[in-house]
Each structure stands twice: as C-alpha cells, then as structure tokens.
Simulated assay, not measured.
Amino acid sequence: MADIEQQDRKGKLARPSSISEGVYDRIYERIMALEIAPGARIPIDALARDLNVSQTPVREALSMLEREGLVRKAHLIGYSAAPQLTRKEFDDLYTFRLLLEPEAARLACRNMTPEALARLETDAADMGRGEPPVDRNSRYSRFARADAQFHDDILAIGGNQVIRQALADQHVHLHIFRLMFHSRVTQEALEEHERLLVAFREGDPEAAHQAMYDHIDRSRARLLLAYE
C-alpha cells in the first residue's frame, strides 16, 4: 500500500492516512508472518479491540484480503485465514509456474523498452530497500508484495494477458511467501532477480527464459523445507 500507518509505542494504529488501509496492512503482515496461523479464525471484534479501531475498517480490510485469497469467509462462521498450501497444491503450483513464467520472461525481453526496464529496476530496488521504520514482519510482508509486483510487471510487459490472468487468479506469491518466514527466501530471490534484469538489459530472450526458470526452480527448492 502506498500509505503505511503510523504506530504508537504500544503497536496500536495512530492516525493512519486511511484507517481501512492501515488495518489492511497490519492484518496482511500478521498473515504473511504466520502470526495469524493458516486456517485460524479471525474474530472481527477481537481484532478491532487489538488494533484500537472500530469494526467497520476491520470488515473492509478483511474484504480486501478475501479478494486476494488470504482470508476466507464462511456463512455463520465468519472470517478465517486461508489454509496453507498442501504439498500436492505446492507441487502443482510450481509445475504451473515453470510452464508459464519462463516463456513470459522471454516475451517480456522481446517487448522490453527503456521505460519498461526502468519500471522493473524500480521494483527490484523496492524489494532490496526495506525503508525504515520497518520491523521484521513488515519488511518480509512488503517484500512479498514487491516480489508479486515485479513478477506481474514482467507478465504485463510480455503482453500475454491469458498467462498474466492465470497466474493472478492463483495469488501465487502471497501463498508461497506464507510457507516460510525466513530471510534466506528474500536474499536469494534478490540475487536471482538480478540475473533476470541482466538478461533484460542485454536484450537476450533465451537468457531471460533460463533465468526465470532457474529462479522458480530454486524458489521451489527453498520452500520445500516448509514440508520437512
């Protein structure tokens, strides 16, 4: 989100530029950091008290998170965090990504313009920056969001809207980043993104295809540790 709420010393929300966006950010960070466990119920009244806000912005934030696939709403039960990916779902998702994203990177390289490359460079810089004040949870959750933006921008530059929509519908990055809350996930991804950027700068579609394939394959290997 563009506007990040200010926090008081107790961690409560204090005069956010948008209360609903501030609440969204806080709940999103807790889900991504597994402070709200996969499958756990999210009682609106308790969350509102914890964040020191009314129930209305909490409901609005949970509605946004539901559209992103991070929470679910059941009749007469209410909201809960989306369940974690099963091992089968994880394997299927990465097989799907390996089929689509390397080709999308090759297409993006062929369509690359100086303006498009500048956008990807900005995305990559945003991932590495982690602007203060940022705690470990917010740094990781912001990285997940920036990583999703980086990959989506590559898909947009590639120009194949079917591939882009198919991956967007899976909420790929939000779900895989919930599997493991670890700095290794972010540091190695930054290095692999740089390989992609080198291929884009050099205008080498085959190198872009290979760099994306390697990035996704290594991401799969890193996150398999979550199932051990």
Rank of each mutant, 00 (worst) to 15 (best):
E103C: 00
P43V: 04
L34D: 08
E35R: 14
D214Q: 15
S80C: 07
L13T: 03
I27C: 01
I36L: 13
A48L: 07
I27R: 01
N137A: 15
G69D: 05
R97I: 13
E29M: 06
P83F: 09
R184F: 11
A148N: 09
A108C: 05
T56N: 09
T186S: 09
R129H: 12
F150T: 01
P205T: 05
Q187S: 15
V71T: 06
Y28T: 00
D8F: 08
L107S: 06
N111R: 12
H173W: 13
H171F: 13
M1I: 07
K12T: 08
L196C: 10
E188I: 08
V23H: 02
D45G: 09
H175S: 07
R222P: 01
E121M: 08
R222Y: 07
L155H: 03
R218K: 14
I154E: 06
F96S: 02
R145Y: 11
C109W: 02
C109H: 04
R67I: 05
R67K: 15
Q149A: 15
Q165R: 15
S138Q: 13
L47R: 02
L13P: 00
I27V: 12
C109D: 01
N111Q: 12
D45L: 09
G69V: 07
S20Q: 11
D91S: 09
E21V: 11
A40C: 04
E68L: 12
T95Q: 13
F177W: 10
E35I: 08
E60Y: 05
S138I: 07
S54M: 03
Q55C: 09
H151V: 01
D50W: 02
K10P: 00
T186A: 10
D25L: 15
P205R: 03
L179P: 06
I216V: 14
V71P: 00
R26N: 03
T95M: 08
S17V: 14
A37I: 01
P102M: 04
Q149I: 12
A2G: 04
A208H: 04
F150L: 06
P57A: 07
H173T: 08
A166Q: 13
I42S: 05
R9L: 14
S141A: 15
V134P: 02
Y227P: 01
G128V: 10
F200D: 01
